[in-house]
Design a protein around this nucleic acid. Structure first.
Lengths: 211, 211
DNA sequence: TCCAATACTTTTGTATACAAAATACAGTAT
DNA sequence: ATACTGTATTTTGTATACAAAAGTATTGGA
């Protein structure tokens, strides 16, 4: 049990939290000296933290000007969701074709057990299960590039979307269908269902964009 | 010897070049002080460059140990290619559904004009056209997340694969088919063909993996 | 009053210095 | 000879200092 103080990681997590909580306004400039003083560290580890946040698209750097909190509009969310659609489709296909597809299906199903035959679903808790479901699918995909990419796309979408985009009543059956396709070992079906699952949400977002 | 304009960017490009050329062996440790002295800069801008390379999966950092040139095996290449398959499929679909799909098809076709009805194709030059084709598809997709992600996946694959994986005679007709689907405005067909195009290459890579 | 040129302040980019951890090494005990 | 241990060296992590660019305020002129 070795604790590395690692100031840059601490700064990274603190700033990430602030951006997500909305404590730092979109478009706001992040003055290095100011933040460093606020966090009680020097600019060097802070700089490392800022670069990590930049590679996650949370902030952006303009040379000789500084770092700015990125503004994410609906279009960006849709873009991220579109990528997630195809990436998680790929992940679902790979899981279904995995030799352990039945075990994997069991694990995925476990996230939703509490909500089956339940007429009064707690939104916040279901949201967590939904997140676990999508994350696990990519983690088990056995594709390292996919894991990193989906984390990004997923993240961009999650971060700036508070609450559920669709109701548990709507998405729960879709989730279970995907899980069953994986259990059957039907890769093409699993991919198709996963993509359909995402497409419905994208359509909803696009209607918002037009409105 | 480097002019004082943007030392970190210059260091980034220099190191990237060295890694790609293979001047830096895979797994090799990058001692900061040493490289900084070599490039004639301090550790601060070098550090920035190292972090940029890390976010591109070219090197990896182990806390308190240092940065190491990443080793990319065949499995990693296949992983990257699988992501590219679905991401560029998405891009092709979006292009076909774009109002300007005919113009886009013309632009894409222009890359391959010199090779049509040509029995003696120069491999190196065709490789460049192939790269342009794939890059342009993502650039025109009008999806910022896709653009960045595909650059990564594409990059990982390109970097460590010298030469063509399949012959021009084999891939040229596939490219033209994709372009025609885009010209027709048939998104589903364009996506399907693009994925098929990638899948054939993945199968080839997977056979190598087993051998 | 308005504009522009210039001085001043702030902020980023870069270099250097120092502390702490990791690594290499030598010497000792078994 | 080998394993262990304490010490020296190397290397990373962090802080501070300074130079250059960007931003802001001020002053002088029309």
């Amino acid at each position: 049990m070795i604790k590395h103080s690692d100031l840059s990681k601490l700064a990274y997590h603190e700033l990430k939290k602030r951006i997500l909580k909305g404590n730092l306004a979109k478009g706001q400039k992040l003055v290095q000296e100011k933040i460093a003083a606020e966090l009680g560290i020097s600019r060097m580890p802070l700089h490392k933290a800022l670069q990590m946040l930049e590679s996650e698209f949370l902030i952006e750097s303009i040379p000789r000007k500084g770092y700015f909190v990125k503004e994410h509009n609906l279009k960006d969310k849709i873009d991220a969701f579109e990528c997630r659609e195809v990436l998680e489709g790929l992940a679902a296909r790979k899981l279904a074709k995995n030799v352990d597809h039945e075990k994997i299906a069991d694990k995925l199903a476990s996230f939703f057990k509490p909500y089956l035959n339940n007429s009064d679903i707690n939104n916040e808790s279901y949201r967590k299960a939904d997140q676990d479901f999508h994350n696990t699918i990519c983690e088990l995909s056995n594709n390292t590039v996919l894991q990193k990419m989906d984390a990004l796309a997923n993240y961009l979408q999650m971060t700036f979307t508070y609450g559920l985009l669709r109701t548990p009543e709507e998405t729960l059956p879709e989730h279970m269908e995907i899980i069953e396709a994986i259990r059957e070992g039907n890769g093409e079906k699993a991919e198709l269902l996963m993509r359909k699952h995402a497409t419905i949400t994208i359509d909803k977002l696009e209607k918002e964009l037009k409105a």
